[in-house]
Design a protein around this nucleic acid. Structure first.
Lengths: 345, 345
DNA sequence: ATGAAAGCGCTAACAG
DNA sequence: CTGTTAGCGCTTTCAT
C-alpha cells in the first residue's frame, strides 16, 4: 500500500509524465492530439493516463487561454415548455462541439439578469445566448465592453459582438390570418404576451400587419395582453367572452396562452372549433396533446438552437466583427382548434 | 485616445492594485470582503474596480482552490415537466449560495453519461446531482475515486461521497390505494415506468405493498410497463382497455403516463372518473390544467431540490464522510380523475 | 520528437 | 492593516 493511496485525487500531468518517462509538455501534446508525438510515446502516455485515472484540470487551461469552452444560456422561465425543448437542442449541439452549458433563469426579474451576467463573465464563458426579453441595456453594455459574444432573441439590435435571432412572425402570422379568413372569420382577436417586451411588440405588430394584408378590420377591443402563461390566457379570454359583440377567433402569442383560453372556453361551454377558433404560437409538444389539438404557428426549436449556436460561433471566431441579424422562420400547423366561422357571426 | 483602448478586455487585479496604489493582495482581500482592510482603502479599491469594470477571473480562483463553486446537474429528459420544475428550484438555491449550475441531459442514453461525468470532472464541479436513473456503475466509481460528491435519486446505495435521496413512494401510494378502495375499487391496475430502472422497481413495489396492505388482490395482468412519457401511457392503457375483464382504476408511474392513458380513454369514449379512475404521480403543474384535473401523488420539487442541495453540501463539507440516505415525502392530491367504482364492476 | 521554463490571475502564508 | 512571494496545472514558445 503505497503513499499514493492518500493523494490519488490530485494526479496531475507531471505525475503522468513521470510515470511515462516523458515531460509534461509531451503529455499535454498527447492529450490534445498533437501529431508531433511518436505513436509509441503517445500510446505509453495514454496507458498511464488510463491507469492513473487522470483527468485534466480545466481551470488551468481556461486560465491560460482566457476561454472556458462554456456557453451561458439565459432563459426567462423554464416552466414554459418552449424553453426545455430549446435547451435540449442547444445542449446537444454544444456537446457535439465540446462546449459545456452554464444555465440560468431570470424568472422575469430584470434585477437577476445583472448578477447572472456577472457570474458568467467570472466563469469566462465564450458567449451567451440570451432568450430572456426583459433586458436592460446596462448588462448588455458590460458584455460588449468585455467583448463577450452575445446573441439575443428578437431584440433586433446589433453591435460589435452582439448578434440577434429575430423571429419571422410575419410568415406564420400571415398564414394564420389567411387560414382564418378562408374559414370565414372576419372578427379576429389577439391575445398578446407580457406588455413592454420587444418580443411581444413584434408579434402583435405582425398580427396587425397580417390583418391589414388580408383586408380585415383590426378592432382594438379584440386585442388583449397576456403573460405567456396559462393564467394570462385565461384572464384575457374571460374578458373576451364577456363582450357583447366578440370576435369569432383569436390568435395568441404562445401556446400556453391558447391553452389558458381553451380552458376558460371549456368552462363557459364555448367549444373549439365549433363556437370559436383559436390559434397558438410555438408548437410546443403539448399543443398536439391537449383537446382539441391546437392549430398553431410553429417555431421549430432545433432550427432556433442551431441559429443561436451558429451566431455565437461566428462571433467567437471573429472577435472584432459586428453582429449579424438572423431570421428564424415560422409556419402554420393546422390541427383541430380552428374551424368554419359560425353562420351569422 | 490612450493605448488602454486596445486591451481593456484584460484588466486584472494588478491593474486595479496599481490604480488604487495598493498591492494585489489587498485588492483580493477587498473583493472577498476580508475585514483586515482599512475601510478607506477598501472604498478606494471598490471605486477603481467599478471604474475599470474589473471582473475577477474565476478560473484562477478555481485553479488555486481546486473547487469551482459549480454543481453539475444531470437529468434524463428535460422534456418531462417534472425536471424543469426541479431545475427551477435547484438553480434558485444554488444562486443563493453563490454556486453556478452546469447542466446536462442524458436523453436516456447510458453512454452519454460517461462523457458527461468526465466533462464535469474536468470542470472541477463541487458535486453532482444525478437525477437520471439509467446509471452504470463505472461512471459512479470514477466519481468516488475522484472524491466528488454525488447525490443520486432513488438509487438507495451509499458510499463515501455518495448520498441518495429516496422517494417515499409508500406514503403516497398507500394513500392512493386507500382512496380508491374507499371509492369502491377492487380491481386496480398499475402502469409503470421504463423497465430496468431502479426507480421504476421501487415504485411498482410500493404499489404492490400498498395493495396488500389494503387487502386488495394484485392481478399481474393489470400491471403494464410504460416509459414515463405520454406515448407509454397510451400504449399501456390501450392494452388495458382491450382486456375482457379489466381493472376499474389504475395508478401510473408519473403524470405524463396518466395523461397518455386519459387520451386513449377519451378516444375510446371511456371517461374519467365516471367509467374509470386514474391516479398520476409527481403532481406536475400540467396535472391541474388538463381535463379532468388529475388526482395524483405529489412529490414536491422544492423539497426535493432542497434535499439534493443539502445532501451535496454535507458531502462537500465532510469529504471523508460516508453518504447519507435521505427520504423525500409524497402525498395524495385528490382532484377529479378519480370517482366511485361503477356498480357491478 | 521531446524537454525546459515562463506565465495565465488569483490567494494565502509570512513578514512586516 | 498591507506588501511580497510562491504556486495552483496547463500550454507553448524556444531549444535541442
Amino acid at each position: 500500500m503505497s503513499s499514493h493511496h492518500w493523494r490519488n485525487q490530485n494526479v496531475d500531468m507531471r505525475d503522468i509524465a513521470k510515470a511515462a518517462g516523458v515531460s509534461s509538455a509531451t503529455v499535454s501534446r498527447v492529450i490534445n492530439g498533437s501529431n508531433l508525438v511518436h505513436p509509441d510515446t503517445a500510446e505509453r502516455v495514454h496507458k498511464v493516463i488510463k491507469k492513473l485515472k487522470f483527468i485534466p484540470n480545466g481551470s488551468a487551461t481556461t486560465l491560460k487561454y482566457g476561454r472556458s469552452s462554456t456557453y451561458g444560456l439565459i432563459i426567462p422561465d423554464i416552466t414554459n415548455p418552449f424553453f426545455p425543448e430549446f435547451i435540449r437542442s442547444f445542449e446537444s449541439i454544444l456537446v457535439e462541439n465540446g462546449q459545456d452549458m452554464l444555465m440560468a433563469t431570470t424568472d422575469l426579474h430584470p434585477s437577476k439578469m445583472q448578477r447572472t451576467i456577472h457570474r458568467m463573465l467570472v466563469r469566462k464563458v465564450d458567449g451567451i445566448a440570451l432568450l430572456a426579453s426583459e433586458i436592460e441595456t446596462e448588462p448588455i453594455e458590460a458584455l460588449i465592453h468585455h467583448r463577450v459574444p452575445l446573441v439575443t432573441m428578437d431584440r433586433r439590435q446589433l453591435a460589435p459582438s452582439l448578434s440577434d435571432v429575430a423571429i419571422d412572425n410575419a410568415g406564420g402570422m400571415n398564414d394564420a390570418i389567411r387560414h382564418l379568413k378562408e374559414l370565414g372569420h372576419k372578427r379576429i382577436g389577439y391575445i398578446g404576451g407580457s406588455k413592454g417586451l420587444t418580443i411581444s411588440d413584434h408579434r402583435l405588430h405582425a398580427f396587425i400587419l397580417a390583418m391589414r394584408a388580408a383586408k380585415l378590420p383590426v378592432n382594438p377591443n379584440f386585442i388583449k395582453a397576456g403573460n405567456y402563461r396559462i393564467a394570462g390566457g385565461e384572464t384575457a379570454m374571460a374578458a373576451i367572452l364577456g363582450m357583447k359583440r366578440r370576435p369569432t377567433a383569436v390568435v395568441t402569442a404562445n401556446d400556453l396562452t391558447a391553452i389558458g383560453a381553451l380552458r376558460v372556453m371549456h368552462k363557459a361551454g364555448v367549444s373549439a372549433p365549433e363556437d370559436f377558433s383559436i390559434i397558438g404560437f410555438d408548437n410546443i409538444e403539448l399543443s398536439d396533446v391537449i383537446f382539441p389539438p391546437l392549430t398553431t404557428i410553429t417555431l421549430p426549436r432545433p432550427n432556433l438552437a442551431e441559429m443561436f449556436f451558429h451566431a455565437l460561433d461566428l462571433l467567437r471566431k471573429e472577435p472584432n466583427g459586428i453582429g449579424k441579424q438572423f431570421w428564424a422562420k415560422t409556419g402554420l400547423i393546422i390541427r383541430s382548434s380552428t374551424g368554419p366561422a359560425r353562420r351569422g357571426s
